[in-house]
Structure formats: C-alpha cells, structure tokens
C-alpha cells in the first residue's frame, strides 16, 4: 500500500522534474531558466524526503535541509546579479 503510494509519488515528482528541465533548456529568457532551476531544487528536496521515507532512514533530512539553504541563496544571488549586474554592491 505505502510502497505503491511512494512509487506513484516518485513518478509524479520525476515527471515534474522533467518538465522543469524542459523549461530550463528551452528558456527563452534568463529569469525563466533561473525560475526552472529554483523549482528543480525545491522538487529535489521533496525527492530526497521521499527517498528517506522509502528507505526508512532519517539521515536524508540534513541533505534536504542543506539543499534548501544553498538553493535559496543561489537563486537570490543570481536574481540580484540579473537586476544589478553585481551581487554585492
């Protein structure tokens, strides 16, 4: 029962990641690509949590937390770079 639900959820998230990847490659503008990348890291957090759930291990929590932290900082840095042409003024 739970195995099936985990498998379906994996499938849904993987399709979502592929759609994000399409937007990342296709663009057309730079903000579009950054937005796609931002969505990819958020979805990968969910994928890591899912993997932790399927393997019954809590160790993956730290990895998910780290991706959340790094992804946020990098998105903001790139967005700042796109508006100002500089990250720290």
């Amino acid at each position: 029962m739970l195995e099936t639900a985990i498998a379906i959820a994996f499938g849904l998230f993987v399709v979502a990641q592929l759609l994000n990847l399409y937007r990342l490659l296709r663009g057309p503008s730079l903000p579009d690509r950054v937005l796609a990348l931002d969505t990819m890291y958020v979805n990968s957090i969910a994928l890591i949590v899912l993997y932790g759930l399927s393997s019954g291990s809590k160790l993956y929590f730290e990895a998910a937390m780290l991706i959340a932290l790094i992804g946020f900082v990098s998105t903001v840095a790139v967005a700042k770079y796109m508006t100002r042409g500089d990250i720290i003024e």
Partner: peptide
C-alpha cells in the same frame, strides 16, 4: 499515502504551469 499523492500531484501541476 494521501499526503504523498497530494504532494506529488501539486508539484506536477506547478511544473505543468511552468
């Protein structure tokens, strides 16, 4: 299982919007 499916479906719809 229900929470997992809700999560997956909404992530997919979000990316579909993208």
């Amino acid at each position: 299982a229900i929470f997992l499916l809700i999560g997956g479906v909404f992530a997919l719809i979000g990316s579909l919007g993208l």
